[in-house]
Computed example of a mutant assay.
Amino acid sequence: MAGLVVVIVVIASLWALQRRLIYFPDRAAPPVPAGVREVSYRTEDGLTLKAWYVPSSRPGAPVVLVAPGNAGNRSYRLPLATALASRGLSVLLVDYRGYGGNPGSPSETGLTRDVRAARGYLTEELGAGRVLYFGESLGAAVITRLAVTHPPAGLLLRSPFSDLASVGREHYPFLPVGALLKDRFPVADQIGRVEAPAAVVYGDADSIVPPRQSREVARRVTHLVREVVVPGADHNDQVLLDGPQLVDAVLALNAAQPAS
């Protein structure tokens, strides 16, 4: 009986605290680097969020909306933005609610609202004509959901998982993860509904998201432009943060013809 009570307490605690095991924000507002414009926009539930816009030197350049993973803040993705800007693409580095000095606490619903507001800023305030989506790990799930309702010019998913429960079971096999989760992020189930050219990039030594899950996502893409498997690369290796294979895949998407 005592053992059952312990199990119940542990499961109840995990239910209550689970988002602390999913989201790892750097809550500090990072200083704005030279050549970067800090912008803000308002979400549908009333939060004002800050992001960084990194412009290309090319007038009217396509814009890449970067939805980050579950850790850090926008400063961690600046090398990626710089690499893309040097190749002729402007970049919006999003920070979710609770990240990078932004108000609020992260959740699946909240992150969905955040990227929707970021897209609205690009299309309505900035007047961007061509927008590409880039989703990193958890951000791949966030941006896929946006792409279903607001198709981009192209969609790049970096190290995507099938759904959050599937990747959670890899790390907590002793827990009923599927029953406990509040946030689901069903990437594999949603990606087939995206009517846009897409690319999937992942490492074959990923210790966070099993490569087989990224392969499954790629298999379900309707308009796959490129699947890039980086040999020996783990989830957070530099080559998967701003490496040439990643940047080239974004450029290939930008050059792709619209899906028909």
Rank of each mutant, 00 (worst) to 15 (best):
A12H: 09
W15V: 13
Q18F: 08
R20M: 14
D26A: 13
D26E: 14
R27S: 15
A34L: 08
V39K: 02
S40A: 15
Y41H: 10
R42K: 15
T43K: 01
E44R: 15
D45E: 15
T48R: 14
T48G: 08
L49F: 11
W52V: 00
V54C: 00
S56I: 13
V64I: 14
L65A: 10
A67H: 10
A67F: 11
A71S: 09
G72E: 13
R74F: 02
S75H: 02
S75L: 11
Y76F: 12
A81W: 01
A81Y: 06
V91Q: 02
L93I: 05
V94G: 04
Y96N: 06
R97G: 05
G98V: 05
G100R: 09
G104R: 14
T109W: 09
T109D: 14
T112E: 08
Y121E: 02
T123A: 11
V131R: 03
F134V: 08
E136T: 04
G139S: 01
A140Y: 01
A141F: 07
A153H: 08
L157Q: 06
S162G: 05
D163C: 06
A165T: 12
G168F: 11
Y172L: 14
P173I: 05
P176C: 05
V177L: 11
K182N: 09
D183F: 12
F185E: 04
E195A: 13
A196E: 07
P197N: 09
A199F: 03
S207Y: 03
I208E: 02
V209S: 00
V209G: 01
V217Q: 01
V217P: 08
H223N: 11
L224G: 03
L224K: 01
V225S: 00
P231G: 00
P231R: 07
A233N: 00
A233E: 03
D234E: 13
H235W: 11
V239E: 05
G243W: 07
P244A: 14
Q245T: 04
L246A: 01
A256L: 12
P258T: 13
S260E: 12
